[in-house]
Design a protein around this nucleic acid. Structure first.
Length: 583
DNA sequence: CTTGGCTGCCC
DNA sequence: ATTCTGC
DNA sequence: GCAGAATGGGCAGCCAAG
């Protein structure tokens, strides 16, 4: 397929909101692609170059793209950034400058979808000294052979910001439609039950091989039956099951009844594979084997082959306490593995088994899988590999007191699980339910901060103040010290109203605002807002607040009743920080 | 040789 | 990670 | 309720600039 044709199809999907329509466009797109194009095009549609588990990335972001636009279209970086701010999308920004150049390059040759993909692959392999310049040149060479619309989509592909309103599930639906039509039905709703079953099968297969591109390609090229042979094998990461949130112990029991309730460890999701060799994978399917060499010899002791679902979390053997996420995450590294494994010892907390001795265990009910987990962990017989703490209950009071115990042990909260359910890879639903302290009403840490600037948003938030720069007031020095940005929690209406309010108070950077982050616009300190977070963190970035900032900050409301000097103080925040670590 | 910006991946 | 929004 | 797309802090690693 020519790339200009592909761009037109992306454009069509981008401007469509109905998922069913997008699915139909996708179906047509796949029909129009040839045998060899379907797999990699699926990666592109998911804003990828390769399946996730290959650990191959472009390492190109806004900064390099802006340089490439500058080089290709002879605009200053400033000019481009200005346009970007206005349009809220670098793809459209590139398109805009390509429009202006249009007349000059009448003789450029047409480019194919495959050629674009090959160039993207080349970009992935461009590393080392002067690689940034080489990357810019490669992108530039693409820009020089494309029309404005192609320029736009090449940019969006590189930046992984296609914004097509299209995800995995929509691609799966397009596949299911293909299968249903191959079976002789005209539309999917002629046999809704069959259609749903097909969807489930496709979803399971793509979760098991972690490679939707392969599944799409197999279905179109070799038929639905051909994906039967995709099975679980040690060495290939399976998509993790995830949980939904619920607001209280009562709500959880109402949904699940008698259930398994486990401690929720704030670490690093780790899928352990023991086949011919031992390998580990992260939640996104990245190979994480090298992070944790200490588990190899322990796992070897178990006689079985298996795939276990675990959380790896740092542990202080002197205080007998689990380490914070910020400590544990330091073990995600390439160098100094040995030293860090001694400095930050990690425990593997096992909670599920997906495969055992050549057989899938996914389909077994959780209560059976849990027994297997306990057996394997017992065999390994080492305190650094344990099962998660857990109870079984159908009483919300019991659940609540177990939850409180977990918090006292320094855990994040609990996971409650349906004992009769199979393991559903890639799911995020109420089969697993998580409860953390701040989900309970009134239990989240709350702060009042003053807005001193804002950032304009991307995509659907373009031209909106979608992220607010927040500061706490220092009475002694009469300064506003920036402590966090906050964007999550703002509704469209709130952004619109902030935009109007900010128009009259936009200002040059006031003398008494201290910040390491340069917002798109500064505003005079006027609005105090309430924000909540999960935790106070120690930050290398926010230097003007004794290094304090927030984990998972979100906007709650405007505090009309407060003046800019009435923010939470840094002393109060410091006190809370030390309290949260002395549980 | 050090520093700082950028990027991707953890949550 | 959390949150909002259209379907 | 699902699916998708907005948004957060902070870690290591890579590369360019100094």
């Amino acid at each position: 397929m020519q790339f200009d044709e592909f761009s037109e199809k992306l454009s069509l999907m981008e401007t469509t909101e109905s998922r069913l329509k997008i699915r139909d466009y996708l179906f047509d797109l796949y029909n129009n692609l040839n045998k060899n194009e379907r797999q990699f095009t699926t990666y592109l549609l998911q804003s990828r170059i390769f399946p996730a588990y290959l650990n191959k990335e472009l390492n190109i972001g806004q900064s390099i793209i802006i340089q490439a636009i500058s080089k290709s279209f002879g605009q200053s970086m400033n000019e481009i950034e200005k346009k970007h701010l206005e349009l809220g999308d670098l793809g459209e920004t590139a398109e805009c400058f390509a429009e202006k150049r249009k007349q000059k390059s009448l003789f450029s040759k047409k480019i194919t979808l495959l050629e674009v993909y090959d160039t993207l692959k080349k970009l992935v392999d461009t590393t080392g000294k002067n690689s940034t310049e080489s990357k810019i040149n490669l992108i530039s060479s693409l820009y020089n052979n494309t029309n404005p619309k192609e320029t736009k989509y090449i940019t969006k592909l590189i930046l992984k910001s296609l914004r097509l309103n299209l995800g995995i599930q929509t691609i799966i639906e397009a596949c299911a439609l293909k299968v249903i039509k191959d079976l002789g039905y005209k539309t999917h709703d002629e046999n809704m039950q069959e259609y749903k079953k097909i969807k489930e099968t496709i979803d399971l297969k793509q979760s098991v091989c972690n490679d939707l591109g392969k599944v799409v390609s197999d279905i179109w090229n070799f038929g639905f039956k051909s994906i039967d042979k995709i099975t679980i094998k040690p060495g290939i990461p399976i998509k993790c099951a995830l949980g939904e949130r619920e607001k209280s112990p009562e709500a959880i029991i109402e949904r699940l009844g008698y259930c398994l309730v486990e401690g929720k460890y704030d670490g690093f999701r780790t899928q352990v594979h023991k086949g011919e060799k031992i390998q580990m994978f992260s939640r996104r399917g990245e190979n994480s084997t090298n992070y944790f060499p200490e588990f190899g010899p322990l796992l070897e002791k178990a006689k079985h082959s298996f795939i276990l679902d675990c959380e790896a979390i740092g542990f202080n053997s002197k205080t007998k306490k689990f380490l914070s996420f910020q400590e544990t995450i330091k073990r995600k590294r390439k160098y100094d593995i040995k030293e860090m494994s001694e400095k930050i010892p990690v425990k593997l907390m096992v909670f599920d088994v997906l495969y055992l001795d050549g057989k899938e265990t996914l389909q077994l009910p959780l209560k059976e899988r849990r027994k297997i987990v306990e057996k394997i962990v017992k065999e390994i017989n080492n305190s650094n590999i344990q099962t998660t703490i857990a109870i079984k209950t159908n009483k919300s009071k019991e659940l609540k007191s177990f939850f409180d115990n977990c918090l006292n042990l320094g855990l994040e909260g609990i996971m409650a699980k349906d004992l009769n359910r199979s393991y559903v890879p890639g799911s995020r639903d109420f089969g697993w339910i998580k409860l953390k302290k701040n989900y309970l009403s009134g239990q989240a840490d709350s702060f009042d901060v003053c807005i001193v600037g804002y950032f304009c948003g991307q995509g659907k938030n373009k031209t909106m103040p979608s992220s607010l720069l927040c500061a706490v007031y220092d009475e002694d020095k009469n300064t506003y010290n920036v402590i966090t940005k906050v964007g999550s929690g703002l509704t469209e209406d709130q952004m619109i109203s902030f935009k109007a309010e900010f128009e009259t108070i936009t200002t040059k950077k006031p003398e008494n605002i201290n910040t390491n982050l340069e917002p798109d616009m500064y505003v005079e300190p006027k609005f105090v807002i309430e924000i909540i977070c999960d935790e106070i963190t120690k930050s290398p970035l926010y230097k003007f607040t004794k290094g304090f900032s927030f984990r998972f900050p979100r906007f709650i409301k405007i505090r009309e009743d407060k003046s800019p000097q009435d923010t939470t103080t840094i002393e109060e925040i410091e006190e809370m920080y030390y309290l949260q670590h002395s549980i």
